[in-house]
């Protein structure tokens, strides 16, 4: 092969890797910029802050990665997180000052009921998507509202504080210097990565997202795969919701609202294709760090907090542009 041919190979490879390279380059640029701009940014204490700040988003994003890899979307993640957190609080003994008609149960029972709730909500999403045939965008939009409704009914505008002890530990305590919530997030990311990369199920997720028809014609039960990812997404959201409540120290309506956009941004900014089949947990990790560093860093340089919102929007826009271009720039076909 000639040198020209060789260099075009390299270029082809780079183009193919655009979706992986661009987010990583963004992350490095952001870290470089904030380290230079602020003395307090590049410290171990702040690294711990960033890790903690991205944890709740991180757990939600694990499930969402499965859904987006299948070329579907789940808009109900934050709502299910909120509902699950509130369900756990509802079945935990609250302080007498909290006037919620709650039903105190042992901690393990509250956790089980909460997990069953998010599982059930995910199953409804799955049913709507695969059996009824409602597009996931619409189905989960309805579920977003249903989750909000459950929250409203259970707390009726009040705030609950107590959570089962296990959740309090995992959500707000530390193991030595490392917060438990960071450990849980890391374990979820790891489990998601193993599931996606090394198991048959994971392979089917990629195949379903890559070409649904070819997957079906190769014997993949596409409906079962889509159902599974919707349930996985809901359960991840539920866990994030419970830990989030413990982390915030309170359970109330609408407290997870920003997490919907954050988790979708993390997955997409990381380079996972909105068209399905491309990307993975590795991308999501980078996406989480990009968002985490951006949010945290903007605080360190004392930027106008209103401008912060605009900057986040612009970063998301750039990521989407790259996402679409990366899709177009697949390795060129040999004639």
């Amino acid at each position: 092969m000639t040198t020209a041919g060789h260099s075009s190979d390299v270029r082809g490879w780079l183009r193919g890797q655009l979706r992986n390279i661009a987010p990583f380059a963004t992350l490095i640029i952001l870290v470089g910029f904030f380290s230079a701009a602020s003395d307090s940014f590049a410290t171990t204490g702040n690294l711990q802050n960033i890790l903690t700040q991205i944890s709740v988003t991180g757990i939600i994003a694990v499930g969402l990665t499965f859904v987006i890899l299948c070329a579907e979307i789940d808009l109900s993640v934050a709502s299910i997180a909120n509902a699950t957190g509130i369900v756990a609080a509802y079945f935990t003994l609250q302080d007498p000052s909290v006037t919620i008609a709650n039903i105190p149960l042992p901690g393990w029972a509250a956790i089980l009921i909460a997990l069953a709730s998010c599982f059930a909500l995910g199953a409804v999403n799955a049913f709507g998507l695969t059996i009824v045939g409602i597009p996931s965008f619409i189905m989960t939009l309805a579920m977003l509202q249903i989750g909000a409704g459950i929250c409203a009914l259970l707390v009726r505008g009040q705030i609950a504080y107590a959570m089962p002890p296990l959740i309090v530990t995992l959500g707000s305590k530390s193991l030595g210097p490392i917060p438990w919530i960071v450990i849980v997030t890391a374990l979820f990311l790891l489990a998601g990565h193993i599931l996606l990369t090394y198991t048959r199920f994971g392979r089917y997720v990629y195949m379903t997202g890559g070409n649904r028809e070819a997957a079906e014609y190769s014997g993949v039960n596409v409906r079962a795969i889509l159902s599974a990812v919707m349930v996985i997404s809901a359960v991840c959201s539920g866990v994030a919701g419970m830990l989030g409540v413990a982390y915030f120290g309170s359970a109330q309506q609408n407290e997870f609202d920003t997490y919907l956009l954050d988790s979708i941004s993390a997955v997409v900014v990381g380079g996972t294709s909105l068209f399905g089949g491309q990307g993975g947990i590795g991308n999501t990790v980078i996406g989480l760090f990009v968002l985490g560093v951006l949010n945290n860093g903007l605080d360190h340089i004392n930027i106008d907090s209103f401008l912060k919102i605009l900057i986040r929007g612009l970063i998301l826009l750039i990521a989407l542009v790259i996402n679409v271009y990366a899709q177009r720039m697949r390795a060129p076909r040999e004639s």
Partner: peptide
Amino acid sequence: RSGLILDMPLVENITL
């Protein structure tokens, strides 16, 4: 359209 997952490697298409 219905036989291959074009963006996936050869090996994964063969063992699908």
